[in-house]
Simulated scan of single mutants.
Amino acid sequence: MGRFSGKTVIITGSSNGIGRSAALLFAKDGANVTITGRNADRLEETRQLLLKSGVSEKNINSVVADVTTSEGQNQLVNTTLKKFGKLNILVNNAGAAITDGSGVTGTDQNIDVYHKTLQLNLQAVIEMTQKAKPHLIESKGEIVNVSSIVAGPQAQPGAIYYAIAKAALDQYTRSTAIDLIQYGIRVNSVSPGIVATGFIGAMGMPDDMARKFYDFYPSHKECIPARVSGQPEDIANVIVFLADRKLSSYIIGQSIVADGGSTLVMGMQAHDIMDILKP
């Protein structure tokens, strides 16, 4: 019997990266998991990974959906309840730094990029929380949000809208934690630093540029003192810890930073990412 046996988890953005690793950890520890993403092929890769690890098909609910839409959100909640009958844990992991198609950065980015960035990184979390709330009240459940060290307090001129969204998400985590603990629901978050996932590729950068990105920062101790990029499972382990009522019961409304020491030195601010990525 795993520690999450009999519990049901929704993990947004679980077709790759941190979400995929979290789904694997939860499922291997006995949970029913709803995995989801917009890319059907990558989501199927996650499902196959779960199956190959010994997770039963009956414990997996795979849903191709866009979490930024009301239809997608409803589909996630409704199919989860239909298959598993309850919801115990919501992991709001889906997120991305959306780039301006014209290549503009900083204050000149199109306002449409702002709206899309906040819709994915903040509004979708708010809406999923609202829709999951009655079911989490019933189960005295947990919510784990995935934020980022870009939330501050250091400036992020190269990713202004993404930083705004994550800073707002941190405040949303704190505020909902106090609002929902009266119902027995715990809310916390994790703030990753540099993690080697498909995050850079999702920004539209080719593989060679992504490699430059993930090779540069660990090679500079003023950026990552640990001298390594994080791996998805490093963050997934924190998510699982925060979702475990026995291990983290007295943690309410907090964000655990997992960044290899980056926020202790923040040398990343001294480097221009566009210079790093130049051919």
Rank of each mutant, 00 (worst) to 15 (best):
T79Y: 10
G54V: 11
T107A: 15
G95E: 08
G106Y: 09
D112K: 12
T79V: 09
K52N: 14
R42A: 12
G101P: 02
Q119S: 12
E57F: 10
S56L: 12
E45R: 12
A97M: 08
T105F: 08
I98G: 11
T105I: 13
L43T: 03
K82Y: 14
T69W: 10
E57N: 10
V67W: 06
S102Y: 11
G72C: 05
R38I: 12
L43I: 02
L43G: 05
S102F: 10
G106C: 04
D66R: 03
E44A: 14
Q48H: 12
I60D: 03
L122A: 02
K82W: 09
A94M: 08
S102M: 12
G85V: 03
Q109I: 07
T105M: 09
L118K: 00
T68P: 06
Y114L: 13
V55G: 05
A97I: 00
S53R: 07
Q48F: 10
T46K: 05
N59P: 01
E45A: 15
G103I: 06
Q73D: 06
N61R: 00
T69K: 11
G106S: 07
R42K: 15
I60T: 07
Q109L: 05
L50N: 03
Q119L: 08
G54N: 06
T80F: 01
D66L: 05
D41C: 10
T79R: 13
K82Q: 15
K86L: 09
K52G: 07
A65Q: 08
L51M: 07
D108E: 14
E45C: 13
S102T: 15
T46G: 06
D66G: 06
L49S: 14
A97Q: 08
V55D: 09
T46C: 04
Q75A: 13
H115M: 14
D100K: 04
L120T: 04
Q123M: 15
